[in-house]
């Protein structure tokens, strides 16, 4: 292993990391929003919307992620929808992560017992007040652990976007290997970088989880 080579490559790798983090951040943000919205629609009782959300989730879960990326980047332009590499990447990653976040938040909503509804109704709270002040905070807490898993997976899955030429961390490594044939140096380096990212995120998630679950227990 040539460490001098790794040091030389580091600025390139870090600029790739920057792209990885930007794309991941956007996808995480958007997929959490879509996740909450989708979960609400899926439990709304409005049948056509429920079916639409379910169909979406099943489509994403039932098809390979790489195919979804190609579908968006190579397929959609022939339907007149053309996005840059960057936005294709963001859309693909968001689309994938959203399906899982919808499921996470749906489970979170299901974890809020019917007793909460009884309490709010008997106190005269409006439906929206009950949703905002009671259901959402409790559902978010219940959904947090699985939602953190999806967030971590979102960061890792940004690596697939090298396939459409997005210059993120994995792309930089693969690109350099094509010129310098230093495969072990590059892959070892990006593994460490990904690990640092993932541990930081899951550490952060664990802290939030502990903070929120204290002092009250389950429910």
């Amino acid at each position: 292993m040539n460490f001098t080579y790794i040091l030389e490559a580091l600025p390139d790798l870090l600029s790739g990391l920057k792209m990885t983090l930007i794309v991941s951040f956007l996808a995480i943000l958007l997929s959490c929003l879509i996740g909450v919205l989708g979960a609400i629609l899926r439990t709304s009782g409005i049948k056509p919307l429920q079916y639409a959300v379910t169909a979406y989730v099943e489509f994403i879960r039932g098809t390979p992620y790489l195919v979804q990326i190609f579908f968006i980047f190579y397929g959609l332009p022939s339907l007149g929808l053309r996005f840059s590499i960057f936005w294709s990447g963001v859309i693909a990653l968001t689309a994938w992560a959203s399906a899982f976040q919808i499921e996470n938040f749906r489970a979170g909503l299901a974890a809020v017992g019917s007793g909460m509804h009884d309490a709010s109704a008997s106190l005269g709270l409006k439906r929206w007040q009950h949703s905002v002040f009671v259901v959402l905070p409790l559902a978010a807490r219940a959904a947090l652990p699985s939602s953190m898993n999806t967030i971590v997976a979102t960061v890792k899955n940004s690596a697939y976007l090298q396939a459409i030429g997005l210059v993120e961390l994995t792309f930089v490594a693969v690109d350099r290997i094509a010129y310098d044939f230093r495969a072990i140096e590059m892959f070892a380096s990006i593994c460490v970088i990904y690990l640092i990212c993932v541990f930081s995120i899951s550490g952060l998630g664990y802290m939030v989880e502990r903070r929120l679950s204290r002092p009250f227990g389950g429910r």
Binding site: G115, S122, L125, L138
Partner: peptide, 27 residues
């Protein structure tokens, strides 16, 4: 009409005081 339940149904994420003031403040 007020109601008290078998399982209390207090809001677990709010303090006792917040449990007591949520409805008066918003309703």
């Amino acid at each position: 009409v007020g109601m008290v339940f078998q399982n209390f149904n207090l809001y677990p994420h709010l303090t006792v005081l917040e449990n007591c003031t949520l409805a008066p403040r918003w309703v």
